[in-house]
Write a protein that binds this DNA or RNA. Structure first.
Lengths: 259, 259
DNA sequence: CGTACCTAGTCGTCTAGAGGAGTTCAACCA
DNA sequence: TGGTTGAACTCCTCTAGACGACTAGGTACG
């Protein structure tokens, strides 16, 4: 049986934090294992002799820390251990494209996950200011916009949106839902743009409500954002890809020369 | 005057979310500028005709998203524009070390910030299992542990801990608090280990309470973690550096060859 | 046997109020 | 002039209760 301890109202730490501390400690020490259910609100109210909102504040704190997830009608559960994946630095090795694998598929399989893609949407739009700038286009030039969601073992882990100049994508499967083996990078090379290098800009933040919904995560889970620009051998940007990843599902690995 | 709109109680989105949506939109569109104060709880209660807790729930949502910060007794303010810094891919260019600049100093200055370092601690410890593995040492071999906190414009933005094998650091300023011009990488090269490349592993998560305290951030702010391993020209790992950065303060930039 | 319903238990949301504590600034007093 | 006080404003925490909605399990009915 879990030792819920007691709160001390004379100390300056407010009761809801003390309750959160006690539960957090149990989680960190494994006495509340991943997947296990926390005591219900009613039990905590009774045990500590506090009001409902006080207990809810405590649990809210744990939720924003990403330690627990609440399920309406069922209970509050300790978040299960993150399925750490790894973006190898040979992510864009040409050999993978030769083998007909897209980067995500290659990685997810290497990490022992069953990869999946859904919610593919392909549209033709006028470039936004940011996209035009990154692609070296004039604002409002046309770009093919490809958005999709990636899954690992059936769970959403990443949403991605690619922007390719219409001048490159025209007449290729890039504008189709199914791009064929090797993904869009293979098709860009087919179109005569040999890829030379990529730049990636990585940062992290809290997800917007839309992103939370698409990635099926709670408000306590941060996301990694990655903006990748692909350049061909002439130095021309040929694609910009904007991705939002569930932070706990990824480790990005890079190799940097010392020069 | 800010248009606070109205909430629609017939729709299925709860009032507190609708209020959060309205405020979030104002922030995203710049009508509530960084640093600007949000309408007070009292004003929002009056305007929307809801209870106190409802307004607080809405603001709590924005706080956990990191969009606003509350200051007791003063008000709620839009988080100031992230002082976006940038880890240029020439971060470890030898010329910086030749110029006597450490990587952080060079970057922060380039981004127009006043850099600072404090809380420097240098100890000699037995390597943990993880560190020993990364450095190719036997567990319990001695390493020099250097931890420090970096500041930009006086605000903490990063805490970092480096591990260097004692065999390399012995008899050099690496084991001193002041390592001299160019930082520890310059000293490692002085010791005959010419640096060849680095690997970096990037991920993001929510901070622990200790990290929150050291970085002076609230519970709604994620951190970027970066584990860097430095290799010399013989392929030997010569340093492991474990850093925790305030996510909103950093954009990491990488260049990846297409191979 | 299978469906529909009921019920207990769970979390989600909201109300209406209370006292507390940090901040600011103007008015007051020495 | 300079320091203190107090009021008004802010957000912080808590109470006690209400209704709603989702889940799971049992039960009664067709």
């Amino acid at each position: 049986m879990l030792d819920l301890g007691t709160i001390d109202r004379s100390v300056d730490r407010p009761p809801y934090r003390q309750i959160a501390d006690i539960l957090r400690r149990h989680i960190e020490r494994g006495r509340l294992a991943p997947g296990e259910q926390l005591p219900s609100e009613a039990v905590l109210i009774e045990h500590y002799g506090v009001a409902r909102m006080t207990v809810r504040e405590a649990i809210k704190e744990l939720r924003t820390e990403g330690l627990v997830v609440a399920q309406h009608g069922k209970g509050v559960f300790v978040r299960s251990a993150p399925p750490v994946r790894r973006l190898a630095s040979d992510r864009f090795a040409r050999r993978h494209r030769k083998e007909g694998k897209s980067a995500f598929l290659a990685e997810a399989e290497a990490a022992g996950h069953v990869p999946g893609v859904d919610q593919i949407r392909v549209t033709n739009e006028a470039a936004s200011v940011e996209v035009a700038e990154r692609l070296g286009l004039k604002p409002r030039e046309r770009v093919i916009v490809r958005s999709r969601r990636y899954l690992a073992d059936g769970r959403p882990v990443e949403i991605a949106t690619s922007y390719i100049p219409e001048s490159i994508a025209k007449g290729t499967p890039i504008a189709e839902v199914n791009t064929g083996p090797g993904g869009i990078y293979a098709r860009i090379e087919d179109a005569g743009h040999e890829l030379a290098h990529f730049t990636e800009e990585v940062s992290a933040r809290m997800p917007s409500p839309d992103e939370r919904k698409a990635l099926e995560i709670g408000s306590g889970s941060p996301v990694l954002t990655l903006v990748r620009t692909a350049f061909d051998t002439s130095g021309t940007p040929v694609e910009v890809c904007d991705t939002v990843k569930v932070a706990t599902s990824f480790v990005l690995e890079y190799d940097v020369p010392a020069q």
